[in-house]
Amino acid sequence: MFEIFGLSSTALFGQLLIGLINGAFYAMMSLGVAIIFGMLRIANFVHGAQYMLGAFCAWFLLNLPVLFPGSGLPEIGYWPSLIIAPIVVGVVGIVTEKLFISKVYDLEHAYGVLLTLGLALVIEGLFHVKFGSAGQPYGIPPSLQGGQNLGFMFLPNYRAWVIVASIVICFGTWYSIERTKLGAYLRAATENPVLVQAFGINVPRMLTLTYALGVGLAGLAGVMAAPIYQVSPQMGQSIIIVIFAVVVIGGMGSIFGSIVSGFMLGLIEGLTKVFYPQGSSTVIFVIMAIVLLAKPAGLFGKT
């Protein structure tokens, strides 16, 4: 152990690790919000609730034998949940888009905000009635228990996995949007949906699938968050406001901006906890205000 600025290295790197973990979730979440906003022009305030749904889905799958005793259903663990939960949440997203969100495309932005905020309140309210505000425990999968002593700090395996996985997910999503043919359709339709449709692409279906993709990412983040934060109905409420600040800082609709700002702001938040703990919950919003004053389109936004 050694000291930096009068702090023990364990304390500093510990906070930086927490910052990086939070940043990983900010990045995965704001990525989905940015994709949805870019394509659908909808500020998806129900994203936090969809993240919560992902975590609950993993919890349900793990507790199937307890929830339905005598049904003979098996316990479905973390790894299958990483695949199943995003698909389930994505399908919920498809239904949500068809039933509700597609109805407000032609209306003012404010209606989209009111609608998605309302949906979030309803979904979170229903889960609150059923499960109360106490969190449900969700264990770290056995294969990722334990950790590594790096000398200057202790790195739990699960947290290392979350950081690596989120970087892979973010890069993979960025690559498929910026460098593939399917992504080219998405970029083109973001710019000029009318013309892309006149070329023979079913744009309404593309909107639905884009929403499902964004929402599926929130579900995936929810599963990954389950062993770190508690699985609780309000887990999405605490993150969604920060996510929107991250998206605004990165530039509304900018994929790259949301990823970079997500990790960066997680780290800044972690550092603030070390040097000025009182400011740690507001620092992101202070940065947002400064960015909006200096660069209203965000750090990576197009003016």
Partner: peptide, 28 residues
């Protein structure tokens, strides 16, 4: 469009987020 009619708009509709090759290969 799928029936066999292709449209070239007055404002040209070149996509800024796509390069020339991607623009060329966009219409199915």
């Amino acid at each position: 469009a799928r029936q066999g009619i292709a449209f070239c708009p007055e404002e040209r509709g070149i996509f800024a987020s796509l390069n020339v090759e991607e623009n060329l290969e966009l219409p199915p």
